[in-house]
Amino acid sequence: MITCADAVKELWEYLDRELPENERARVEEHLNFCRTCCGELEFAEELQRFMRSRQSDEIPDDVRRRLEGILSELKEP
């Protein structure tokens, strides 16, 4: 049996499927009865989605101009 503190430490590894089978089973056993840790797990999943979704690949015009300048100045490999 593991404590909430131990379970919370392992939730991201649990989501990432990085835990060995025995540790994964212990986390699952804990999640079966602990509502707080289930909340932590849902939030960890939400945070992972959040990190993927809050990204922008915009490039400012001045940066693009400078980088294209670098491209045209490159000497033969």
Binding site: Q55, D57, E58, I59, V63, L67
Partner: peptide, 15 residues
């Protein structure tokens, strides 16, 4: 090379 590198510039800059 220039043509190849131009398209992914926004993606590369984001990364």
């Amino acid at each position: 090379f220039q043509d190849l590198a131009r398209a992914p510039l926004p993606r590369l800059y984001g990364l």
